[in-house]
């Protein structure tokens, strides 16, 4: 992308999309009452796409803005720290794995999803000063893997199908 304002507009749209996907996820949650705490991570489709097509800066920026906006709209300070901890670990691992390029988008996304959950569990351990969260680790690793596969496939599809000249 050549000019700056186009980049700003594009990343703005991406942030809005990530935000609305996060909202959609909140709306859909009552549909799965038996699976507490598990999320699909829909906004991560946008992040994975940006990481591959627009680089680290765009992915990190949009991810952080998305968390900030979601927290301001629906959450509280605590939710913010949990989200940031998860996103930080997740982005860090995805950036490294993308660089090493021995995994496809799906693998990177799976690693990111699991890292996100582990980041949140670690934060919970710190906040609650407890180490008895092993059960959550099992549930969240399995759900993170499944969600990561789905998100990774969706992301890979977008990376392949959306023409280079548009973004």
């Amino acid at each position: 992308m050549k000019n700056r304002s186009k980049t700003v507009a594009f990343l703005g749209v991406c942030t809005a999309l990530a935000l609305i996907l996060a909202y959609l996820e909140i709306l859909l949650q009552p549909l799965f009452p038996t699976l507490p705490g598990i999320k699909m991570g829909l906004p991560n489709i946008v992040i994975v796409f940006l990481l591959y097509r627009r680089g680290i800066g765009a992915a990190v920026g949009v991810s952080f803005l998305r968390i900030l906006l979601v927290t301001m709209l629906f959450g509280n300070a605590m939710a913010f720290f949990f989200s940031v901890a998860g996103a930080f670990l997740s982005l860090l691992l995805m950036i490294i794995l993308r660089r090493m390029s021995f995994l496809s988008t799906v693998g990177v996304s799976v690693a990111g999803a699991v890292a996100h959950n582990i980041g949140q569990i670690l934060t919970a351990m710190l906040v609650l000063e407890t180490v008895e969260l092993g059960y959550y680790l099992v549930i969240l690793t399995v759900s993170g893997t499944v969600a990561g596969i789905v998100i990774g496939l969706a992301g890979a599809m977008l990376i392949k199908k959306i023409p280079q000249k548009i973004v």
């Binding site: 390029s101 021995f102 496809s104 693998g107 799976v110 680790l137 690793t141 893997t145």
Partner: peptide, 23 residues
């Protein structure tokens, strides 16, 4: 890469299975 993905997914599921069985 596809194979590596599978290995990663397999390892993660295996580890959580082990932890679940242990618990």
């Amino acid at each position: 890469r596809f194979r590596n993905d599978m290995i990663l997914i397999g390892v993660l599921l295996f580890l959580s299975l082990c932890l679940a069985l242990y618990l």
